[in-house]
């Protein structure tokens, strides 16, 4: 298991262009092979907001911890960190040749575009799971609409984008509202 976690996060690291959020879609897909649910993944995103540090490290630690305990977390964090060490050492050797390479820039621009689509898809999966209780898009017959979670989703989006309210505050506030609503 530990070895599997290590190789999975090594793969995620080397394919993870464009930073933590772009990596999330990879993590979402790979972690579901370990049995991670959409809810657990949504909770991971919430913890990413609440806990300081790079998102990729946070996410790797979380998945590793859940499926392999202490050693799992250590393996996943170490694995996801490997590309940085390798590329920095390699770059210092061949400085200049990689810099200003048109092909590399073109590839990165496309990967960035791809990440937009991938992140949107992940966001929609979480939305389907929380507000409609659907496992995936083809599960429409079994949907169960949850008004509260849709209201919170929209409110959080608007308050974050329009009013620039801190995501940490919004996450905690949502938790309190959800907690209170149970008693209504």
């Amino acid at each position: 298991m530990i070895l599997q976690i290590f190789s999975t996060f090594l793969k995620i690291g080397f394919l993870g262009f464009g930073g933590g959020y772009a990596m999330l879609s990879l993590i979402f897909e790979e972690a579901s092979k370990f049995g991670m649910t959409v809810s657990q993944f949504a909770d991971l995103n919430a913890l990413d907001v609440l806990i300081p540090g790079p998102i990729a490290i946070n996410s790797a630690t979380y998945v590793g911890q859940i499926y392999g305990g202490f050693w799992g977390a250590l393996a996943s964090t170490f694995a996801v960190s490997m590309p940085s060490l390798i590329f920095v050492l390699a770059f210092m050797q061949y400085e200049g040749r990689i810099n200003n390479n048109g092909y590399l820039k073109a590839a990165l621009t496309s990967v960035k575009a791809a990440s937009v689509g991938l992140i949107f898809a992940v966001a929609l999966s979480i939305m389907l799971s929380t507000t409609f209780d659907m496992a995936n898009l083809f599960d429409w017959q079994n949907h169960r609409f949850d008004f509260l979670s849709l209201a919170i989703l929209i409110a959080a989006f608007v308050l974050h984008m329009r009013c620039n309210i801190n995501p940490i505050a919004l996450t905690l506030l949502a938790g309190i509202i959800g907690w209170l609503c149970y008693f209504i």
Partner: peptide, 26 residues
């Protein structure tokens, strides 16, 4: 119980923030 209710609300914000990130990158 109430904890699950709180978590469901928190998950909704996590979808919201991912939509926001995707929108900003786009």
């Amino acid at each position: 119980g109430p904890m699950l209710s709180a978590l469901v609300a928190v998950r909704a914000t996590s979808a919201a923030f991912l939509f926001a990130v995707a929108y900003t990158i786009a």
